[in-house]
Amino acid sequence: MLKIGLLGAGRIGRVHAVNIAGHAATTLAAVSDVNEEAAQSLAAAYGARALGTDAILADASIDAVLIATSTDTHSDLIEKATAAGKAVLCEKPVDLSLERAKACLAKTADSGKPVMIGFNRRFDPNFAAVRAALSAGDIGKAELLSITSFDPAPPPVSYIKVSGGLFRDMMIHDFDMANFMMGGAPASIHAVGTSIVDPAIGAAGDVDTAVVTLTYTDGRIAVIKNSRRAVYGYDQRLELLGSEGLLSAANILENTVSKATKAGVTSAKPEFFFLERYMRAYAIEWDAFVSSIVNGTPLPVSLEDGIAALALAEAATQSAKSGQPVKLAL
């Protein structure tokens, strides 16, 4: 049984706590958070201890940590955890700074401890099935990828100011998905972003609506569309056109009931937010991490994968500001 330390008792930390405690091979041993009351409450719910982060890292009985703290702490905690002999699953992104993320990779490369980055969408059964079908040759060679990712409503501006911006905070999931589907990074990226949902987001220096085009050395193209507002729910779709066919993954709806009358045909809305939409993906992600640790197999999402997605986010930010395509140098 692996003993796990959870660093971060916020919204996503609580999601991970469910999966850690519910897995047959792991137990939630300790929880830390800057909000001590939150840590104590979550720890008590699962019979764990509420400790400081340093105490968790110093505890030799804890085998691995899951980092679900604020982004600006990720690189430091990855380095400290691996130095303490812990395996690590860290929420995305690795850092807000690409250079800092690369430094983290360099510092942890020789630790011998595995570091997995939490791009949970790779583990969504529908997106994973698309990737498996592509790998099996079902549609020939991938040629054109389209990813749609719309949030139901924008976050508060207070969050926007510390998030690193839409490309690093929101679209980074889609950059990783593009890398996952296309088998690697593009040669160039061209981004366009505006603030039409909430003027306060623009005033904070960010965008809330964006379209990015990724171009690959062999001529393949990927298009990513993001918006902070889709009033009908959490819109998560993917379409992949290949030389011999098309693969697509549609939204998960609130229910499967449809109504057909002479007035038309209606169905349910997409599930409202990521907690509902990706709950199963988070559970599969945790199982994949545990299986890799127990069996010694390569992690399905590496620290290098996290850096590759962050490099795209940084390039997109530059492109959106300059209005010009940016070449990738990974």
Rank of each mutant, 00 (worst) to 15 (best):
A142F: 01
P114W: 00
I20C: 07
E244V: 00
G8W: 11
T261D: 12
G52M: 12
T297E: 06
V88W: 08
A9E: 06
K141D: 15
D63R: 09
K102S: 10
K269A: 15
V94L: 09
S41D: 14
L275K: 10
N120V: 13
G245Y: 05
L57H: 05
G193T: 04
R220Y: 09
L77R: 05
G205N: 03
R168E: 11
M177Q: 14
R100Q: 14
D76K: 14
A230M: 13
I172H: 03
I189D: 02
I196S: 13
D54H: 11
V88C: 11
S243L: 08
T53M: 14
P125L: 09
L330M: 14
L240P: 05
A136P: 08
S97W: 03
L7F: 12
S61T: 15
L105N: 07
L42S: 01
G245F: 06
K80V: 05
A45V: 03
A191M: 05
M1N: 07
L51V: 10
S227Y: 02
A87W: 12
A187V: 01
A48V: 04
A142L: 05
A308F: 09
G202C: 03
K102T: 10
S322E: 04
P300C: 02
L330W: 13
S188D: 10
S158M: 08
A329R: 11
V130Y: 00
A136E: 14
R228Q: 13
M116A: 08
A101D: 04
Y278K: 01
E239Q: 14
K86Q: 07
S258M: 11
A210K: 03
M171A: 11
Q236S: 13
C104N: 07
P325R: 03
E271M: 15
V65N: 03
G233E: 09
G202D: 00
S149Y: 15
G306W: 01
D176W: 06
A311G: 13
Y46I: 00
P325H: 01
I189F: 06
M279W: 00
A101E: 02
L145P: 00
G296F: 09
T266F: 10
A103Y: 01
G10L: 04
N179T: 06
L240I: 03
V212D: 04
A58L: 05
G306T: 02
V301L: 03
L105M: 13
A43Y: 11
A103V: 04
L134G: 04
C90E: 05
F274D: 11
A45Q: 15
F272V: 13
A48W: 09
I224F: 10
G306A: 02
S291P: 00
D305Q: 08
V301F: 06
L238K: 05
P93C: 10
Y278D: 14
A29E: 14
R237Y: 13
V88T: 12
N295G: 03
D54Y: 01
A29L: 02
V18F: 06
L144Q: 13
R122A: 08
L330K: 11
P125F: 10
F274A: 14
A250D: 15
L77T: 07
R277N: 12
A48I: 04
L166Y: 07
S135W: 03
E36N: 10
Q318H: 07
C90H: 04
H16L: 10
T53E: 12
D63P: 05
G112N: 10
G112W: 13
A315F: 01
V211Q: 14
